[in-house]
């Protein structure tokens, strides 16, 4: 399951990444394997999305969210 498939309010735990470059940036921002994520909201036009991770809110585009594989 990809992060981009979650609906608002749903949770998941990061398993792995499909894009190396993106994963480096995401991990720096606290989005690491084993970390729990909750989708907080989706932008009015459907993209990007906002997630809660490591105690703060992070926004990312759907395309970027689709590189995060959840357990």
């Amino acid at each position: 399951m990809k992060l981009s498939q979650l609906k608002v309010g749903e949770r998941g735990t990061v398993k792995e990444f499909t894009d190396l470059e993106m994963s480096v940036k995401l991990m720096e921002m606290g989005c690491l394997p084993g970390e729990e994520i909750r989708v907080e909201r989706i932008a009015p036009l459907g993209d990007p999305i906002a997630i809660n991770v490591a105690g703060y809110q992070l926004s990312l585009r759907k395309r970027e969210a689709s590189t995060i594989i959840l357990m």
Binding site: K25, M29, P48, Y56, L58, S59, L60, R61, E64
Partner: peptide
């Protein structure tokens, strides 16, 4: 630079 959009939404 590769365009990406990983941005903090501060409180």
């Amino acid at each position: 630079e590769r365009g990406y959009f990983i941005m903090e939404l501060p409180v």
